Simulated scan of single mutants.
Amino acid sequence: MKGRKIHSLVDTLGLPIRLVVHSAGVQDRDGASLLFDKITIRFPWLKCVFADTGYNAQQTYEAAGANGLRLEVVRRDPNAVGFEVIKRRWVVERTFSWLGRNRRLAKDFENLASTLLAFVTLAAIQFGIRRLARP
């Protein structure tokens, strides 16, 4: 994308719980505090959050701890050769794949981050409704 990052907190099925869009100049570890902000008010049962190695920083652990969450960074096996499916991480990657199937989100057409967030939210609602409609 052109200068934007989307941080997504998803459940175990890959359905988004919280989305944050900001400029690409903000590091992942700083974006995590925006993601964790006020999350325990809406989802008080949430206790553990899995993240990839981009979020492996002291400030990310502090942001999670300040919101009553335990952060576990999912790492790749150091002995692995070639491609390897990383436990827990594929769930978020699948969510981004679902978002990419939406025509409006296939490329970065939006000028404002708030507009992009609105279309990502609409796409998430769409595949959430489709999942509910399945028999």
Rank of each mutant, 00 (worst) to 15 (best):
M1Y: 07
M1H: 06
G3S: 09
G3D: 13
R4M: 14
R4W: 15
K5R: 11
S8L: 07
V10L: 08
D11Y: 14
L13D: 10
P16H: 09
I17Y: 00
L19C: 11
L19G: 13
L19F: 11
L19T: 14
S23R: 12
G25D: 06
V26H: 11
D28F: 11
D28R: 12
D30W: 10
G31T: 06
G31D: 08
S33T: 11
S33P: 10
L34S: 13
L35C: 07
F36E: 14
F36Q: 10
K38S: 14
I39M: 03
L46W: 04
K47I: 07
D52A: 00
D52W: 00
D52R: 01
Q58F: 03
T60K: 05
Y61A: 02
A64G: 02
G65T: 05
A66V: 00
G68E: 01
L69N: 09
R70G: 02
R70V: 06
L71M: 12
E72D: 00
V73T: 00
V73K: 02
V74T: 10
A80G: 01
V81M: 06
V81N: 03
F83C: 02
V85N: 02
K87V: 07
K87Q: 13
W90N: 05
V92M: 12
F96V: 00
W98H: 13
L99T: 14
L99Y: 12
G100T: 06
R101A: 04
R101Y: 08
R103F: 03
R104I: 11
R104C: 09
R104N: 13
R104L: 12
L105S: 14
A106H: 10
K107D: 11
F109M: 11
E110L: 04
A113T: 11
L116E: 15
L116D: 08
L117Y: 01
L117R: 07
A118L: 07
V120C: 15
T121M: 02
A123R: 00
F127H: 04
F127S: 00
G128C: 15
G128A: 15
R130T: 03
L132G: 07
L132N: 12
A133K: 15
P135H: 10
